[in-house]
């Protein structure tokens, strides 16, 4: 049962208040018309599913209801970093 720091509420709250919302930094295609079927498949269905430190999205469902970013180990479940959208991007992420 995680204890998650919501970057908006600035409070540590129980996992019960949050919902996981999938892998982070999956960019929406800029030019959808130009995408091949393989690229579409990769965008919609394929996932990194990383074992180790993993960037993902959570939403503070029973709180501020905002989405944010969490870097968490999928081995130990330790949360290493939380960030609001924009604070961390696929370019500058650790």
């Amino acid at each position: 049962m995680f204890l998650i720091d919501c970057p908006y509420c600035k409070e540590s709250r129980d996992q019960n208040e949050f919902s996981p919302a999938g892998e982070a930094f999956i960019a929406r295609p800029q030019n959808p018309e130009e995408l091949s079927d393989d690229e579409w498949a990769d965008y919609v269905f394929y996932r990194t599913n990383h074992k180790g430190d993993h960037w993902e999205q959570w939403v503070h469902t029973n709180g501020c209801r905002k989405f944010f970013l969490v870097k968490r180990s999928t081995i130990s479940h330790e949360i290493l970093e939380v960030a609001a959208f924009g604070e961390v991007t696929s370019e500058n992420k650790s």
Binding site: M1, Q15, P20, H50, K51, H54, T74, H77
Partner: peptide, 14 residues
């Protein structure tokens, strides 16, 4: 299942 990704063979109490 728990909604998050994990390789830890343990889930949440809830």
């Amino acid at each position: 299942i728990d909604g998050y990704n994990s390789y830890a063979q343990r889930g949440s109490a809830k």
